[in-house]
C-alpha cells in the first residue's frame, strides 16, 4: 500500500486562490487505511476548508471501501458521470491520496487542475490498523532471496548490500538509536533459519537503471512488460 499523510491544512489553504471552487477527491483504499483520505476524511476536509472560507464544489471518494482512486476507468466514471455537475463547476481538485491518485485525477478529468492534499511517504505493510511500516523500496530488482526476505536496501539506512557498516551500537542503527540495524536483523534471521551461508558471497552493485523514473508496466494474464532505463523486459506469467 502507498502510505500517505495529510498536508497541514494551512498549507492546503495557501494553494487555493480566492474564489477558486474546489472538488475534494479521496481514495477508498490506501488513503482510507491511513485515515488521510477515506470517506470520513474527504467529507471532513470539505467541511474544514469551508470553515476557512474555501468554496467547495463537491466531494467524493470513488467506489466502495477497498477500491483505489488510481483505478483510472472507475475514477473517470465516478467523476465525469456520477458527479458530472459539481465536477463541471469545479476549478480544481484537492486530492487526498498518493501521487498516483493525483495523476489519476488529472487523467480522469481530462487534465483538470489538481492540488496535493497529502504527502506520499512510502509503500508499506499494514502491520495493524494503526501501524504501517516500510519494508520495500520498490527498486525493481528484488534481492531478498539472499537476506531471509528482509530488504537491506530498505532496512539499512545506507542501503548496503554486503553487510553492516561499522556504525551500529548494541544492534541499533547509527542514524536512529531507537531502530535496529537492518543488517543485524538480517543476520539474526538467517542465523535462526540456519542460512548464514547466504551472508558470505559478494553481492554485486545494484542495477539502478531498474530503479529509474518514470517506469511503466504493461500487464496481461500471459505476460508482463516492464519498461525502465534498463530497457524493456518481458516476463511470462504462464511459462
Amino acid at each position: 500500500m502507498h502510505a500517505t499523510i495529510q498536508k497541514p491544512i494551512q498549507e492546503i489553504v495557501r494553494y487555493i486562490k480566492p474564489g477558486e471552487k474546489v472538488f475534494v477527491v479521496g481514495c477508498n483504499n490506501c488513503a482510507w487505511k491511513c485515515h488521510s483520505g477515506g470517506e470520513d476524511e474527504t467529507k471532513n476536509m470539505a467541511r474544514r476548508l469551508e470553515k476557512r472560507g474555501v468554496e467547495i464544489a463537491g466531494y467524493s471518494t470513488p467506489g466502495p471501501q477497498g477500491m483505489s482512486l488510481c483505478k483510472l476507468d472507475h475514477t473517470r466514471k465516478v467523476l465525469m458521470e456520477d458527479y458530472a455537475d459539481p465536477v463541471k463547476k469545479a476549478d480544481s481538485f484537492l486530492v487526498l491520496a498518493c501521487g498516483q491518485g493525483i495523476h489519476t485525477v488529472i487523467d480522469a478529468t481530462d487534465g483538470g487542475m489538481v492540488h496535493p492534499g497529502c504527502d506520499t511517504i512510502f509503500g508499506g505493510e499494514t502491520v495493524s490498523e494503526t501501524q504501517i511500516d516500510e519494508f520495500c523500496s520498490l527498486c525493481g530488482e528484488c534481492i531478498v532471496e539472499y537476506t531471509g526476505g528482509l530488504c537491506p536496501l530498505t532496512l539499512c539506512s545506507k542501503g548496503l548490500l554486503n553487510g553492516a557498516c561499522g556504525g551500529a551500537e548494541n544492534g541499533m542503527c547509527e542514524v536512529d538509536a531507537q531502530r535496529e540495524c537492518g543488517w543485524v536483523l538480517i543476520y539474526e534471521r538467517l542465523k535462526k533459519l540456519g542460512r548464514l551461508d547466504l551472508m558470505l558471497p559478494y553481492r554485486e552493485p545494484k542495477n539502478f537503471a531498474k530503479w529509474s523514473r518514470p517506469r511503466s508496466l504493461q500487464v496481461s494474464p500471459e505476460e508482463a512488460i516492464f519498461c525502465s532505463q534498463d530497457g524493456k523486459i518481458t516476463i511470462s506469467n504462464q511459462d
Binding site: 553487510g163 553492516a164 561499522g166 548494541n170 544492534g171 543476520y187 551472508m199 558470505l200 559478494y202
Partner: peptide, 14 residues
C-alpha cells in the same frame, strides 16, 4: 566493537 562481532568479521572477509 561491533555486536555481533561475527557479522563484522564476515564483512572483513568480504
Amino acid at each position: 566493537n561491533f555486536v555481533p562481532l561475527d557479522l563484522q568479521l564476515m564483512k572483513m572477509k568480504k
